[in-house]
Design a protein around this nucleic acid. Structure first.
Length: 827
RNA sequence: GCUCCAGUGGCGGAAUCGGUAGACGCGUUGGACUUAAAAUCCAAUCGGGGUUCACCCUCGGUGCCAGUUCAAGUCUGGCCUGGAGCACCA
């Protein structure tokens, strides 16, 4: 009997062996179909946390399962290594961010290897290395050439703590996504990517993604925020030739306009303000500017505003109404101006009520008559007070009224999106420099492609406050204009790190190419990613940006597919004691500790065992212990018997009579089927692990009831053990390999084919017939499975118990579910 | 406010199509082994009630209320609770 289970020693040995023999290398060419399994790559923060362990274990098991099922599997890893933590560390310790990053990568690489993940390390990508960011810059230039990258002066989100601007997607509840500090508005000239050009495609193509969760798709759809409506242009009475356009989704209420609101930042606001209102308006605008995003966005804040003194004329009915400015109108959405219909919009109602503005009902519903004095009526109804549209259903009136405005030249149909262009400039050091120069003569000039990468300078001072360290480099700023050769200065901003992560998955297809960002044939071969696994927190940011990038690069002719991730699994969080593991709460569990005390196989088994992958996972020390005991139980099973397990056994060669009648053989087939289905449908690893346990329990039971002397039984036993090891191998990767090797199996267990099952054997030899009366279970009996419905019915009626219960009652009806159930309906 | 997801024992969770609710595990309890402990193994474990104390009977039970159906954790409608996302988006 082999000695006890010492995972640490076994694991180290096999990890070295796999590395040496390149067991997990992925060739580009293969006659097998491809499969691309991908985890979201980590930021090299220093150490792995349990969320990483969960993410990478899930993907690893999928990759291994697919490989054993005959796919050429691409399963790479890399590092999302630009970003603020490295820079902050540099500022605190006056260290080089590159060095800090490299050290973290080295440590985390060691941890990933200890977890026994089947990565092809030859394809590792690191976004902060010049050989990678060269291509990030090159891609930026392609987008620039396509007109998808542009610079503009705009109100931007500024995080003072991070000392940089943020994209809209990076502002969560008015706060910075990274550091949680309150975001301010600033006016700056910044680089943007025209993601809005892709709004329609990003929305429509969500339908092409049946392999994505509905929750993620809805979040993206909400973020894109499509709405259909109309633009109406209103002439200003006091200013000749000036018009105020408004966007509305309620053109049907146009006859009920009683005032109009423009945002405090509205471009023509000064022209729209009369002399006597000027000081009040100026004061109001100054206040609005001072307000933080959080205050401004709070919906329960009482509405405020001031009149501008001017008026517009409603071309539909000739009525005149006043113009106001109020901060409930947003400058960045629609036209920055809103037509106000207090009777049919709750916000306009609140505002009108406060400032005593008139109200006019234009939609009524006979069942729910609108009451213009108490609240806005926002539901459907029939138009009134609307001239020729009176009596029309409001849903129809939307179209008819907009059409009239089109015919008469003061309006149009308009589709509006909430999505804004992606602000990508960052006033930080540790990112890919934007490859643009500003020439005294030629203006904004893209760097020449052959001059890439624009290297990050290293002669910088990290101790500066209030500006980017990159500006302190004496060598970086001044350069030569690629067009005229004259003096030029470099763009000092770096790119948002989300750009680096918007294309890394493409680079894996051709990671070592130093001539192109990737070869088109290779990228078309490997992509799209067949299974992407990562946290739900990227539902909008990373996943939306990556989808945009893929579409834009397709339009640049660099690749031929338009969605990067065919299937997406968003794994749940790892919790401890009911809340998310975090350093501040002090409820973290260090993976190293688990590796050391129990080994990686226990960690892998446990992280998959208790919850389905998409759900949150509550870490419990007892659960870890339980998994460790289970592996020990398997270990004992493997060596408790003095039998030579023969791993070359083929289940099909076991004598037919034995095969069909042995419980263990049937159990093995049943579990193979169950485990395979559980992995295939939705990656239900928690039930897979239940089935491992059932199988092990069955083998123990069988050993207790059967001798291991007869050749037939030895064969059955060997078949069961062999199947167990193969089924177990994607999860308990080291234990399975050690056992496979020690029991004399050929090659690596990880190069075996997945187990097959025989449909006829993957079920019990007899069925259990359930007999119900009026839908309630009253009896169960064994029956042959080939009995037809009639025989099952009579069998059920033969049961003494059923006889007794139906005695003297009228049998109205009998329902038979083939091979399963008989329901007798009595009165 | 809008959108999406979820709600099943003490706990994590299971239950392809509407067809035996509670698989598997954790925990708990009892037992075996042991001088003892650990480890291991065996057994019990949804709740109420009954009884001839059994491998028994019976009733109830998947957030709540209705409905469809021979049959509902599963389908439909309406609510409640929790989580997530969006939110003065006109």
């Amino acid at each position: 009997m082999k000695e006890g289970y010492f995972p640490q020693e076994i694991e180290k040995r096999w990890q070295a062996k796999w590395e040496e023999t390149k067991t997990f290398h992925t060739p580009d060419c293969s006659d097998k179909p491809k499969y691309f399994a991908l985890s979201m790559f980590p930021y090299p923060s220093g150490r792995l946390h349990m969320g990483h362990v969960r993410n990478y274990t899930i993907t690893d098991v999928i990759a291994r399962f697919k490989k054993m099922n005959g796919f050429n599997v691409l399963h790479p890893i890399g590092w999302d290594s630009f970003g603020l933590p490295a820079e902050n560390a540099a500022m605190q310790h006056n260290a080089d961010p590159a060095k800090w990053t490299d050290e973290n990568i080295a440590y985390m690489t060691k941890q990933l290897k200890m977890l026994g993940l089947s990565y092809d390390w030859d394809r590792e990508v690191t976004t902060c290395k010049p050989e990678y960011y060269k291509w990030t810059q090159w891609l930026f230039l392609q987008l620039y050439k396509k007109g998808l990258a542009y610079k503009k002066e705009a109100a931007v989100n500024w995080c003072d703590k991070c000392g940089t601007v943020l994209a809209n997607e990076q502002v969560i509840d008015g706060k910075c996504w990274r550091c949680d500090s309150v975001v301010e508005k600033k006016y700056l000239s910044q680089w943007f990517l025209k993601i809005t050009d892709y709004a329609e495609r990003l929305l429509d193509d969500l339908d092409k993604l049946p392999g994505w969760g509905e929750n993620v798709k809805t979040m993206q759809a909400n973020w894109i925020g499509k709405s259909e409506g109309a633009i109406f242009r209103f002439k200003v009475k006091e200013v000749e030739g000036l018009e105020v356009p408004v966007y509305t989704t309620r053109p049907d209420t146009v006859h009920g306009i009683t005032y109009l609101v423009v945002a405090p930042e509205y471009k023509d606001i000064e022209k729209l303000t009369t002399a006597e209102n000027k000081s009040a308006v100026e004061e109001y605008r100054a206040n609005a500017r001072k307000m933080s995003e959080i205050e401004r966005l709070s919906t329960d804040r009482p509405k405020t505003g001031v009149p501008l003194g001017t008026h517009c004329i409603n071309p539909f009915n000739g009525e005149e109404f006043p113009l106001w400015t109020a901060d409930y109108a947003l400058a960045e959405y629609g036209t920055g101006a809103v037509m106000a219909v207090p009777t049919h919009d709750t916000r306009d109602f609140a505002f009108a009520k406060k400032y005593n503005l008139p109200m006019k009902v234009v939609i009524q519903n006979s069942e729910k008559p609108s009451d213009c004095c108490n609240e806005a009526y926002t539901e459907e109804g029939i138009l009134v007070n609307s001239n020729e549209f009176n009596g029309m259903k409001n849903t129809e009136a939307k179209k008819a009224i907009t059409q009239k405005s089109v015919n008469e030249g003061f309006g149009e149909f308009k589709t509006q999106y909430r999505l804004r262009d992606w602000l990508i400039s960052r006033q930080r050091y540790w990112g890919a420099p934007i490859p643009i120069v500003y020439c005294d003569k030629c203006g904004i000039v893209p760097e020449k492609e052959e001059n890439l990468p624009v290297m990050l300078p290293t002669d910088v001072d990290f101790s500066v406050v209030g500006k980017s360290p990159i500006t302190t480099s004496p060598t970086f700023k001044d350069t030569i204009c690629p067009i005229c050769g004259g003096h030029a200065v470099r763009e000092m901003d770096t790119m948002d790190t989300f750009i680096c992560s918007s294309w890394y998955y493409l680079r894996y297809s051709d990671a070592r190419n130093d001539k192109e960002c990737f070869n088109k044939e290779k990228v078309n071969h490997w992509l799209p990613v067949d299974q992407y696994v990562g946290g739900i927190e990227h539902a909008i940011l990373h996943l939306l940006y990556s989808r945009f990038f893929t579409k834009a690069l397709k339009d640049c002719g660099l690749l031929d597919f338009d969605e990067p991730f065919k299937n997406l699994l968003t794994q749940g969080m790892v919790l401890k004691d009911g809340s998310k593991m975090s350093k501040s709460k002090g409820n973290t569990v260090d993976p190293d500790e688990i590796f050391e005390n129990y080994g990686a196989d226990t960690a892998r088994l446990f992280i998959l065992s208790d919850s389905p992958p998409a759900r949150d996972f509550d870490w419990s020390d007892a659960g870890v212990e339980g998994c460790y005991k289970f592996l020990n139980r398997i270990w004992r099973l493997l060596w408790m018997n003095q039998v030579n397990t023969d791993l070359s056994v083929d289940g099909k060669n076991i004598k037919a009579t034995k095969r069909e009648n042995d419980d263990l053989i049937r159990a093995v087939h049943m579990q193979i089927k169950g485990i395979t289905n559980d992995i295939t449908n939705e990656f239900q690893f928690n039930t897979v692990i239940s089935k491992y346990r059932e199988l092990v329990n069955t083998i123990y039971d069988w050993i207790n009831k059967n001798d291991l002397v007869s050749d037939e039984n030895k064969q059955v036993y060997s078949f069961a053990i062999k199947s167990l090891l193969i089924l177990l191998s994607p999860v308990a990767v080291h234990l399975a390999e050690e056992a496979w090797h020690e029991l004399g199996g050929e090659g690596s267990v990880h190069n075996q084919n997945w187990c097959e099952w025989d449909e006829n054997l993957a079920k019990a030899s007899k069925i259990t017939l359930v007999v119900q009366i009026n839908g309630k279970v009253k009896d169960k009996m064994e029956a042959d499975e080939d009995l037809d419905d009639e025989s099952l019915k009579s069998l059920a009626l033969l049961s003494p118990k059923i006889k007794e219960l139906t005695e003297g009652k009228e049998i109205v009806k009998t329902i038979v579910v083939p091979k399963k159930l008989v329901n007798i309906v009595v009165k």
